[in-house]
Design a binder for these strands. Sequence first.
DNA 1: ATGAAAGCGCTAACAC
DNA 2: GTGTTAGCGCTTTCAT
Lengths: 341, 341
Amino acid sequence: MTAPKLADIAKRAEVSIAAVSIALNNRDTKRVSEAKRNEIRKIAEELNYVPNEVAKALSERRTRLLGLVVPFRDPILNHFIAQVLSGIQVTLMRRGYSLLLYSPTGKSGGSTRDQVLERRFTDGLIFVDTGSSSTRDLAERIQQLEAAKIKFVMINTYSHRASVNSVGVDDSAMGEAAAHYLVQRKHRRIAFLSSSGMLPTHLHLLQGLRRGVIAHGLDLPAEHIGCSENNEETTFRILDRWLASKRTAPTAIFCADDQLLMHLYGYVEARGMRLPEDVAVIGRGDASFNSLLRPRPTAFYLPTFEMGELGAGMLIDLIEKPEQKPQRVLLPFKLHAGDTA
Amino acid sequence: MTAPKLADIAKRAEVSIAAVSIALNNRDTKRVSEAKRNEIRKIAEELNYVPNEVAKALSERRTRLLGLVVPFRDPILNHFIAQVLSGIQVTLMRRGYSLLLYSPTGKSGGSTRDQVLERRFTDGLIFVDTGSSSTRDLAERIQQLEAAKIKFVMINTYSHRASVNSVGVDDSAMGEAAAHYLVQRKHRRIAFLSSSGMLPTHLHLLQGLRRGVIAHGLDLPAEHIGCSENNEETTFRILDRWLASKRTAPTAIFCADDQLLMHLYGYVEARGMRLPEDVAVIGRGDASFNSLLRPRPTAFYLPTFEMGELGAGMLIDLIEKPEQKPQRVLLPFKLHAGDTA
DNA sequence: ATGAAAGCGCTAACAC
DNA sequence: GTGTTAGCGCTTTCAT
C-alpha cells in the first residue's frame, strides 16, 4: 500500500482536504472545530500519516534545506570541516532546517552553471573556504551568486565586499599577535610559512605579522616567507633552506594552517630535530586537531565550531527576514600556549 | 523577476511545455525535431533556465537525495564520521545523488516518529553506527524502518538480520587477530578495553579475542575486561587497577576504539609511563586519526572511507534496482604495525 | 467554521 | 513529431 496522504485522511474523516491540512498544521486554530481537529488527528495517527515534504516544499516555495558547499579532500581538511559541520548542525536543528552536502567536482572556480545548479533544493548556501580559492575566484563566485539571487554565507573567509555575509577571524590581527608573542619570547628572526601567496588569508596574516615585527624594529625579509603550494616536498625544501645556516636561520616559524603544521612536524621528525629547541613554532588551526599533536603546539585556535554555528544562523536570518542586512563577522581567536614556542 | 520555468521557454519558442521538457531532458530524442530542440536549448540558455528540482522530485516521486543519520558529538567521532562521509560523497557524486545530513536529537533509540520523519526528502537512509546503540536499540530501529518501508543501509555495524543491508568489518576475526599478534609477541596477560559491554562490536571483538587467546592455551579473565562507558575517569580507574600489581598486570591491552585510545594515551602521559615499555597497546580505529599520535600506535585500521563508499553504493542499488537483494558485507581490515606493541 | 478550486513546476500517458 | 491533459501532494485564497 502506498503512503497515506491528506486525501485519505479527509475521506475517512469526511471533511475536506483543506480542513485536514489546517488541522494538522496549526495546533490551536479557529478554522477547524475542536471536535473535527481531534478526529482528524486521531485518524492521521492511526494511518501513520507522514507529510510529503516535497509536495509541501513545492507549494510553499521553500525547503528548509541549506546547502553546504565544501570539498572533501584530505583527512586534515575533513577534520576541519567536521568541526564546522557540527557547529552548523547545532544551529540547524534548533531552527528546523536540514543540511544538504555538495562537494564541488571540478577545480576551484567551477562554472556558473555548477554554482547555480547548486540551488537545487536549497533555500540558501553555506560556503566553507578551505584555503583553495584565490581572491579572484572568490570575487567571481560571489558575483555569480548575487546575479542568480542566491542567498549565501561564507565561512572562514574575509571578503571585502560589504554586501556579503561572512564569518571568519581577523587574520591580520592574528599575524600581529603572533609577532608580538614571538618577539616577547626573544625571537628576532621570524619566518612565515603558508600554503599559497594568492590566498586572502595568506595576505592578511602576512600583513599583520609584518606590522607586528616592524613595530618592534625588526623586519620580515622576503626569503623568510615560504609557500608550500600544499606540497610536502616543497615544505621540506623551504625548511632545509631556512635552517641551513645557523647564523641566518629563523628562530621561530609562524605556520598558517594545520596541514603545514603536520608537514612541519614530519620534517622535524625526519631531520631528527626538536621543538622548540631547534626552532620555535606557532600554529594556526583547529583546536581538536592541534591537541592531538606532541609536542603540544603553541597555536591560535580557530573557532571552527562557532564559525559554523554562527554562519548558519546568519544565513537563516537572511532567508527568513527579508530586511536583514548582510554582515561580516570576525570572531575572536585565542592563542593556546603549548610547548613549541 | 522570478526564475524562468518551462512555460516561459515554451512561450518564447512557441511550442508546448511538454516539448520543452523532453528537449531539455533527452540529449537525442526523436520526440522533438532537431530544429526545435536547438531553438529550445538556445532560449533556455539565454533565460538562464535552471530546473526546479522540487517540482521534478514531486512529479518523479524521487529526489536523488540520501539521508545520513549520524550524531555529531565529540571531535574524535567527528573525525571518524568525516572519513566515512568523504567515502559516501565519492559514490554519490559518481551516481548523481546528494546527501542530506540528519543529526538525531534525542538519545539513542528515538521515537518511531523521528525515524519515519527522516523519510523527509530522501530516497533512502544511511546509518552510521558510532558505537552508541545496543543490540536491542538496533533491532528496534530496524523493525521500524522496515515497517515504514524505508530503504536503508547500516555502516560500521554487524546485524544478525539477513534482510538488512550493512557494511562493516569482521570484529570477531579482528579480536582473534589481535590475540595472535600479541601472543606471538610473547604477551601472556592480555586485557580488553572497550566502551560498553552492551555494544555488538564489544561482543564480537571479545568473542574473537577470547577464541584467540584460548587457542594459545591462555585465558582472558573477567577482571581484564574493562568498560569505560565513554568516561575518561572510568578509564583511568580501570587502568590504575589493572596496572597496580606488577605480578598480575596485563602486559598488553587491546583498545576497542579511538576515543579509548586517546584516553589511554592521556593516562600514560599523566602517569609518566611509556609505550610499549610499561604496557603494550594495540588499537582499532581510523587510520588518519591514528597516524597523528605519537608514539605511533600499532592498530587495526578500519576502512572508514571504503565503508562509506561501499555503503552508499549498496543503498543506491537497493533504490534503483527493485530486485536487488540486501547484503551484508564485511570489509577486510589490516593491522598497521606501529611502535606500541 | 468549512469546502471548492486554483495553483506550485514538472513529467508522462495519450491522442492527434 | 507535437500538443493536450492529468496528475504528483500540499497550501491557500475565496466563496459559502
